[in-house]
């Protein structure tokens, strides 16, 4: 327990500089890109020079670079991100709308990745080199090689267009939930995007778990367990799989960030209004405040997810959290 507390404290302390660096990076990236929020807007609607000047003044883009940076940092310090230039709405409102969709999709994808990945990994790693292992390993490799936009479209064509089991996109049935209620409706909308986003990670987890188990089979303690006459099933679980799960959890923690970012494509194909698509809109709209808000939010999600992973690791392997700090 003391170890867990130490992990929490350490993570929180390191979050502040991380967040500052991320915010500055967001500002610098958009400054480095040619064109500003007004250029992005005028590309859609046109307008004369006076119109552009008025809009720049209104959006606070008419100031010098130091002036804009100061205003940006001031907003961050006061924890008020103000108005999004691209969407003409408060940044906080926009993020509050989108974050739950992304968290749901991430949870769904992580569920698919962990569930399917561990299942495949266990079945392969239980008897490495067997026929079942060969089949599953090949399958996992194929899954890993599939680009997720392609998988997303194939899933839509088969399960939404041909079979009609799931909707083609969106996050709810528009015009009121069908029989079964809103929760079931949301779940039906979540299935295909979660698989599309999670399948590649499932394959990665399966391969990592299998590799760990293959290594464990030749370890002394496993051979000792054999010698003691323990049943194979018990050996697989207690001696082989459990230590092999540690790198899988570490991998999960490492990939939470890519789950947030990698969802752009899947969110686009499935028309899920989430943070990935929003980040894309913020960049194309040269919207520094919105992008900073998204990155801050994503940073917090990653930090929390890593914290949870560390806590889980501490349970799996009590040595973690004791030694360092």
């Amino acid at each position: 327990m003391r170890g867990a507390l130490r992990i929490v404290a350490r993570r929180c302390a390191s979050a502040v500089p991380t967040i500052l660096v991320v915010a500055l990076a967001a500002f610098a990236l958009l400054e480095a890109a040619p064109g500003d929020a007004v250029d992005a807007y005028l590309a859609q609607v046109g307008g004369d020079a006076g119109f552009a000047a008025e809009l720049r003044a209104r959006l606070g883009l008419a100031d010098s670079l130091p002036g804009r940076l100061a205003a940006f940092l001031g907003r961050l310090a006061s924890l008020d991100l103000g108005m999004s230039a691209a969407l003409a709405r408060p940044v906080v409102d926009v993020i509050a709308e989108r974050l739950p969709n992304t968290l749901l999709l991430m949870a769904g994808a992580a569920g698919v990745a962990a569930g399917l990945g561990v299942a495949i990994g266990l079945l392969s790693g239980a008897r490495p080199g067997g026929a079942r292992d060969a089949l599953l390993s090949t399958g996992a490799l194929a899954l890993l090689a599939m680009p997720n936009f392609w998988l997303a479209l194939v899933l839509v064509l088969i399960f939404a267009v041909q079979l009609g089991w799931f909707p083609t996109g969106g996050i709810r049935t528009i015009g009121g939930a069908p029989p079964g209620g809103a929760a079931l409706d949301a779940l039906r909308h979540l299935v295909l995007p979660s698989i599309a986003l999670g399948a590649g990670y499932a394959a990665m987890f399966a391969r990592t778990l299998r590799a760990g188990m293959v290594e464990a089979w030749s370890a002394d303690h496993v051979r000792a367990a054999h010698a003691r006459g323990l049943r194979r099933r018990a050996i697989v679980w207690r001696a082989v799989a459990r230590p092999a799960l540690v790198p899988v959890l570490v991998l999960l923690g490492q990939h939470v960030g890519t789950l947030v970012g990698g969802s752009v494509v899947v969110e686009t194909v499935f028309a899920v209004p989430g943070m990935g698509r929003l980040a894309f809109e913020a960049v194309t709209g040269r919207d520094a405040l919105l992008l900073a808000g998204i990155l801050l939010c994503a940073t917090c999600v990653v930090l929390v997810a890593n914290l949870l992973v560390d806590l889980a690791l501490a349970r799996l392997d009590p040595r973690i959290g004791q030694s360092d700090g």
């Binding site: 479209l153 839509v156 939404a160 909707p167 083609t168 996109g169 528009i174 686009t268 194909v269 028309a271």
Partner: peptide, 15 residues
């Protein structure tokens, strides 16, 4: 319906 992906538009029409 906001459908940013054009392939998804075709799928939604088909369905």
């Amino acid at each position: 319906r906001v459908l940013p992906d054009r392939a998804a538009v075709a799928a939604a029409l088909e369905a």
